[in-house]
Design a binder for these strands. Sequence first.
DNA 1: CCCCCGCGTTCCGTTTACGGAACGATCGCG
DNA 2: CGCGATCGTTCCGTAAACGGAACGCGGGGG
Lengths: 185, 185
Amino acid sequence: MPQPSPGRRALDADPAVIGARVRSLREERGISLSALARLAGVGKATLSGLENGTRNPTLETLYAVTAQLGVPLTAVLAEPATTPTVHGAAVHATLLEVFTDADATYELYRMRVAPGAGQLSPAHQPGVTEHVTVFAGVLRAGPADAPSTAAAGGYLRFTSDVPHSYAAVGDEEVDASLLLRYPRR
Amino acid sequence: MPQPSPGRRALDADPAVIGARVRSLREERGISLSALARLAGVGKATLSGLENGTRNPTLETLYAVTAQLGVPLTAVLAEPATTPTVHGAAVHATLLEVFTDADATYELYRMRVAPGAGQLSPAHQPGVTEHVTVFAGVLRAGPADAPSTAAAGGYLRFTSDVPHSYAAVGDEEVDASLLLRYPRR
DNA sequence: CCCCCGCGTTCCGTTTACGGAACGATCGCG
DNA sequence: CGCGATCGTTCCGTAAACGGAACGCGGGGG
């Protein structure tokens, strides 16, 4: 993918917000701070500080608490159910799955390319290839100096160890799947 | 293929596993431990211990690192969601995403084909095409009377409105992504 | 009224995660 | 060959997260 865009990720790791969520979850269950601390096997001071956002908890602590609340860690780490996404000027991609084997790592993305000016991505490491299958719209993509075109149902493959571009042809947004292959070095 | 059923999200707070995920993400990006530590503003000792699972990181530390990797905290804390799966004699597929537009419906699957005897699938509706990108192993697939072969990184496309087959070539299991395109009728 | 109990916070000594520095290993170059 | 640069790990003093104990507070009994 185009490397992680510098744009701020709205993911909040703010201890105060996390603390507020924990407190809220605890109060929903009508359980006291002391009791939860006892159940989770952490000190009351620890839990108090955590809920008030005055501490910077370790994973171990946070996990012990959320486990007793019966919720996954992700429930208090904000951002309910957001999958990793990458934004660019024209390209918007969400990571669907990562697969690693002996030879390479694959990242499978759902990609959308907005109409209008396209987007240029910097080179990746040597040997990285991109595989795109177009769902809708017409996509022009590939090495910056020699892009190819594919319409709905079409497929493109190119090596992305050189700068490469994505652009929607025409007015329609492009929907596609993007597979990135990183060979193991 | 079967109806999507709700996926569950398993959670794993084991520092060793989290560390392994962080290391894997870093290596995917071809960046050194030292460099990542510098970017994230944490000590090399901290990152080393984190990746090796010998420390119990604070949220602050983990967030600083994952932010630089361009992934949300949840990417290293949760197992990939389990989604609807389809089992066959040799083929095992999990649905990753469905996309519908004016012309067609797409279903994106993660597919595994066990070595040994292959599997024959009956014909789909007219005009249905399948698009396969191989991650690992060697796959032989296509119309039952004229299958093609693809190795890791390779791509196959065929129309599946006739009976078609999948088989792993050799002893190795095949890992691949499968895209099904159903034209609107 | 005065206890007594449990609440959440604060204090405090201990444990440990932290960053910086030092280390040996590995590579590319003259 | 040595030299410099960079790699990941280890050592170490410091800062801070930890659990336990003490604290002030409020709400029921006896």
